[in-house]
């Protein structure tokens, strides 16, 4: 299949950036990233600079791949990361627009690569359970109902890719933050510091320049792991309770 790619090129954060057009010969078994590999090999053979994009595990779990394909983070397939998107979902002769995640909280580093360290700082603000190595009791001393463990898992399945931010018209990071807040607040071991956690994480999220949630729900629709906006409601609840709480 012959494809026309309109790829975003941007030298660094300060550069204005522009689209560049490339023709690529692909086949349907390739993953989207393998198709980009072919394009890059082509560029290198012409002694041009290849397009920078982030990728690592190519199994849909590390969360490194981060591009917007035809206006959708991770492309048109539901609950699929870019690396797991296969070319059989495209047609011969298609034109594909490839852009970086666009949000103030995710400044572009180069081409399709953006800086997502804001997510790390949000986790550092409180996305953990304060337990040191060696302290715990036996794993079975803390009973967790199956459905609670399962719900916590659903939230913990977040891969931190940032597609929620990229998809949201407000560039809000609420889905990411709420997934972590939910994961930990649902489990008995995480309830102890739930108040402090949600307060600190939300504060950090605001400081990073992400927008607010206006319940557009594009985040859930584009999330490659299908994280539910139920988590956002849960975080809102936690946050309201924290606001009324007298705990520090």
């Amino acid at each position: 299949m012959k494809l026309t790619l309109k790829v975003w090129r941007q030298k660094d954060a300060k550069d204005k950036g522009r689209f560049e057009t490339h023709q690529v010969e692909a086949n349907e078994h390739m993953s989207f990233l393998e198709m980009l590999d072919v394009m890059n090999e082509q560029l290198v053979s012409e002694k041009k600079e290849p397009v920078a994009f982030e990728h690592d595990c190519r199994e849909g779990i590390c969360g490194a791949c981060s591009m917007v394909i035809n206006g959708q983070p991770h492309g048109p397939q539901k609950t699929t990361t870019t690396c797991q998107l296969h070319m059989r979902h495209f047609k011969d002769g298609d034109t594909i627009y490839i852009e970086p995640f666009r949000a103030k909280g995710f400044p572009v580093i180069k081409d399709l690569v953006v800086d997502r360290s804001a997510f790390d700082r949000i986790i550092q603000a409180g996305g953990f359970i304060s337990v040191s190595t060696g302290q715990p009791v036996d794993g079975n001393a803390l009973l967790v109902p199956k459905d609670v463990a399962s719900k916590a898992f659903d939230a913990a399945a977040c891969i931190g890719c940032g597609a929620c931010v990229a998809a949201c018209p407000n560039a809000s990071a609420m889905l990411f933050v709420s997934a972590k807040v939910s994961h930990l607040a649902l489990l008995p071991q995480g309830k102890v510091e739930a108040t402090r956690r949600v307060r600190n994480m939300v504060r950090q999220m605001d400081e990073e320049g992400f927008g607010n949630c206006s319940n557009v729900t594009a985040c859930e629709a584009e999330c490659p792991k299908g994280i539910s906006i139920e988590n956002i409601a849960r975080m809102n609840r936690e946050y309201l309770c924290a606001s009324f709480s007298s705990e520090e």
């Binding site: 337990v131 803390l142 967790v144 916590a152 930990l184 995480g190």
Partner: peptide, 8 residues
């Protein structure tokens, strides 16, 4: 240790 950290 992992259970205490919240591994589901």
């Amino acid at each position: 240790q992992c259970v205490a950290q919240g591994v589901p």
